[in-house]
Simulated scan of single mutants.
Amino acid sequence: MAHSFHVSKSNHSHVHLKWDNALKPIHTVDSGSEVSFDLLDGGHNQFTATSTAEDVPNFNLALGDPAHGPIFVNGAEPGDILKVEFLRLETASYGWTAILPGSIGFGLLADEFPGHALKIWDLETHKAEGYTVFKEGIHIPIKPFLGVVGIAHEAAGEYSTIPPYDTGGNIDTKHITEGSVLYLPVKVKGALFSCGDGHAAQGDGESCGTAIETPMKATIRLSVEKGKPWVKSPHYLTPAETDEMVKSRVQGKGEYAALGIDADLLQASRKALRGLIDWLMGEKGLSRDESYMLASVAADLKIAEIVDMPNFAVACSLPLSIFVGKPYV
């Protein structure tokens, strides 16, 4: 029978800022073992529930996206798959979203937002109802997931934890929630699994560079699978919808989207995001900073069309169900 293991955020030797296959494992587990993690947030807990916008210029991006691990999984060999099952994900009582200073250059429109801002979220008061309040009249569903989930690279050396890779890493995929399964292609003996960067909610794209960042308690099952050569990058499986989830989706209020059209996919994405920000300012009366942060935690960037050259179409869409009261409805 596989054992359970715990990884504490208070032990600094359990935290690393680079993927490196030379890192010494903090635990060795058998396939099928459960590992619980007490995780720092994606900003290395530099912001707390009492932080203000005055603290943002002091943010050190070099400490960003800390990963907890690595975990050596017995039986994992190059060519195998590491199956990662997300059993439980629990946020802290608070979270944060920031527009980081332009000098850091973080976010899809970082060059257009040279200032800084910070939103501290209350993740406790309405936890039972499943949402948090952006501002009165705007509710954001809480859907916890981990931004950083990955294993060691095949090549020697250090690799930043900030980008995503074929071995996982900072994949920031909001669909890999509790009940989901992630499949990662093993490149080194033992896989060397690490995770971190808890999010309470995020839009596809994480457009301002931050989601609702929060410390997270996570319980994960790690299993080795063989004979799946088609998994050459992270693949994932989401859980089946419950009747309640289907009912909620069907009764949704639709979405509002802005299309960005350009011969460059990145520029098309920037245009789409600008369009949604302009709509939120003009139609809903939000400030420019509020609009940028709201888009990052609730709006989805989607490739609407990619084959009709020379231009691409990207949609930045926002579910209207987040608007629950005056003056927004």
Rank of each mutant, 00 (worst) to 15 (best):
T91S: 01
T91Y: 00
A92F: 01
S93D: 14
S93Q: 05
Y94H: 04
Y94K: 00
G95E: 00
W96N: 00
A98V: 02
I99E: 00
L100C: 01
S103T: 09
I104S: 02
G105V: 06
G105I: 08
G105P: 04
L108K: 07
A110N: 06
A110S: 11
A110D: 07
P114Q: 08
P114W: 07
G115Y: 09
G115E: 13
A117W: 05
L118F: 12
I120F: 08
I120A: 06
I120C: 06
W121L: 09
E124L: 15
T125K: 14
T125N: 09
E129W: 08
T132C: 14
T132H: 03
V133E: 13
F134D: 07
F134K: 05
K135V: 11
E136R: 13
E136W: 05
G137C: 13
I138D: 08
I138S: 07
I138W: 10
I138R: 05
H139P: 05
I140C: 09
P141L: 15
I142H: 04
K143C: 14
F145T: 10
F145A: 06
F145C: 09
G147S: 12
V148M: 09
V149G: 01
G150T: 07
I151W: 06
I151P: 05
H153Q: 15
E154G: 14
A155S: 14
A156L: 15
A156N: 14
Y159I: 09
Y159N: 11
I162S: 10
Y165M: 11
Y165H: 11
D166A: 13
D166H: 11
G168C: 12
T173D: 11
T173P: 00
K174N: 10
K174L: 10
K174A: 11
H175T: 12
I176L: 08
T177Q: 13
T177R: 12
E178P: 02
E178N: 06
E178S: 13
G179K: 09
L182S: 03
Y183V: 07
L184D: 03
L184R: 02
V186I: 15
K187C: 08
K189E: 15
K189C: 03
G190F: 02
A191W: 05
A191E: 05
L192D: 04
F193Q: 02
D197Q: 02
G198E: 03
G198T: 03
H199Q: 10
H199T: 02
A200L: 06
A201N: 08
G203R: 02
G203W: 05
D204N: 11
D204H: 10
E206Q: 13
E206K: 06
S207V: 12
G209D: 07
G209P: 04
G209C: 07
A211I: 03
I212Q: 01
I212V: 14
I212M: 06
T214E: 10
T214R: 02
